[in-house]
């Protein structure tokens, strides 16, 4: 169960909005990139993210460019999950690949700063105003999330295959 703080963001948001292109061409360090989140496009009433934040979007979030750096920069800025009606397709993959849950759900009754509790496996979000059900992520995405990201998941799978093989050889 995750407990996070709701940070409402209104309107369609592109990955260009999240992180302008020039910064991903200048640095590969997420902590550095985090300084430039929403630098050009400032969502109405936006205050900088802090650890434990959960983005609550009311429109499609993360459309446009493939830049995974938009996700790693949000994570470095403190974002622990995203909830919204829809996500840009590549952005959605990038989120789960980096173990940042992106959950398709409408959370209209949740206010800025509210405590948001997320049960990923059960597919349930609880906030002061509402309890909302969502389709839990498919097993592959849950595995990737629990492993800490796609590359760790793949490495772990490889290790377990190898250990199975060596057990097979030993017997």
């Amino acid at each position: 169960m995750m407990q996070l703080r709701a940070r409402r963001i209104s309107g369609a948001v592109s990955t260009d909005d999240i992180l302008p292109a020039r910064y991903k061409h200048a640095s590969t360090n997420p902590d550095e990139l985090a300084k430039h989140v929403f630098e050009y496009f400032v969502p109405p009433g936006f205050a900088p993210f802090a650890p434990g934040d959960c983005i609550i979007a009311d429109s499609v979030f993360g459309i446009g460019s493939s830049r995974e750096q938009a996700v790693s920069a949000l994570m470095a800025a403190g974002v622990g999950a995203l909830i919204g009606p829809a996500f840009g397709r590549i952005f959605y993959r990038n989120c789960w690949n980096l173990a940042l849950p992106a959950i398709e759900a409408d959370l209209n009754d949740c206010r800025e700063g509210d405590l948001v509790q997320i049960d990923l496996a059960a597919g349930q979000i609880v906030c002061p105003g509402a309890t909302v059900a969502f389709s839990p992520p498919p097993p592959l995405l849950l595995d990737v999330y629990r492993a800490g990201g796609l590359l760790r998941h793949v490495a772990a799978k490889k290790l377990s295959r190898q250990s199975l093989q060596s057990q097979g050889e030993g017997s």
């Binding site: 493939s66 750096q69 993959r93 990038n94 690949n97 990201g149 796609l150 590359l151």
Partner: peptide, 23 residues
């Protein structure tokens, strides 16, 4: 993201981020 241009040649051409491509 504009890898989808490959659809003009009927490739299943998919834009992806760095982790997907690395994998």
């Amino acid at each position: 993201s504009h890898t989808c241009t490959g659809g003009a040649f009927q490739s299943l051409a998919l834009g992806m981020g760095a982790t997907d491509i690395a994998c």
